[in-house]
Each structure stands twice: as structure tokens, then as C-alpha cells.
Amino acid sequence: MIKSLISCPSPEHAVLEFNGLFDRSTAHKVRRDSLKLVQKQGSRELEIDLTNARCIDTSCVAVLVEILNTVRKQGGKLKLTGIDDNTARMISLSQLDEIFEDVIVAEKK
């Protein structure tokens, strides 16, 4: 199960906080919630907080790539916070470090 918490500090800026297990059975929910914010609400600046979420398989990396693609296509910016070591390792295993380089923000909010 995964729960999402949406907060919008400004109309352009949205923060999505996920809470729970982020795997291939919940990935479609993360994807839907995030893409809705970008496509329907037109948020230019999306921040995804995964401090309380645990990524356990590569489907979450795939979903993050997809969100990143969508945000960039709309000329927006994506920020990822609270990425744990395991997810970072999975990203580097998929050789996606460079793509995520300026997306991942190390410090927690």
C-alpha cells in the first residue's frame, strides 16, 4: 500500500509526499498521482518526497523516469528528495545517474 500527500505551496509548485511501499503493485498509483499534477494541474515545479517510501524494485525507477520525461516535456522541473541508498543504487545499476544527477536533492527538507 502506498499513500500520497499533496501540498501546493504555490500554484506553480507542487509537493508530493509518498508514504509506504513503492513497488510494481503500487507504481501505477504513484504514476497516476504525479502525472495528474503535471498534466491536469499544470504544475511547473514538482517535488517528490520519498523519505517515507521504500522502493524495492526497478518499476519505481521506471516510473520516476516517466515522470521526469513528462515534466521536462512541459518545460518544468522535477525535484526528488529523500532517496534512500537502495534506490540510488538501482538508479546507478540502470545507468541513469547522469539523467537524475540534477534531479536528486540530497538533503531532506
Binding site: R24, A27, H28, T58, V61, A62, V65, E66, L93, S94
Partner: peptide, 23 residues
């Protein structure tokens, strides 16, 4: 296997397959 066992969106599956092939 992804199509049969998961409810992931087609685009996500496409990205995943490319990632695995890249590996």
C-alpha cells in the same frame, strides 16, 4: 511477464524493458 503479472502502464513497461536491455 510484466504485462501478465502487473498492472503497470504501457509506457512504464516500455521504460522498464529498455532499462533491462540496457543492463
Amino acid at each position: 511477464p510484466l504485462k501478465v503479472h502487473t498492472k503497470l502502464a504501457d509506457e512504464t513497461i516500455r521504460i522498464m524493458t529498455v532499462m533491462k536491455l540496457n543492463m
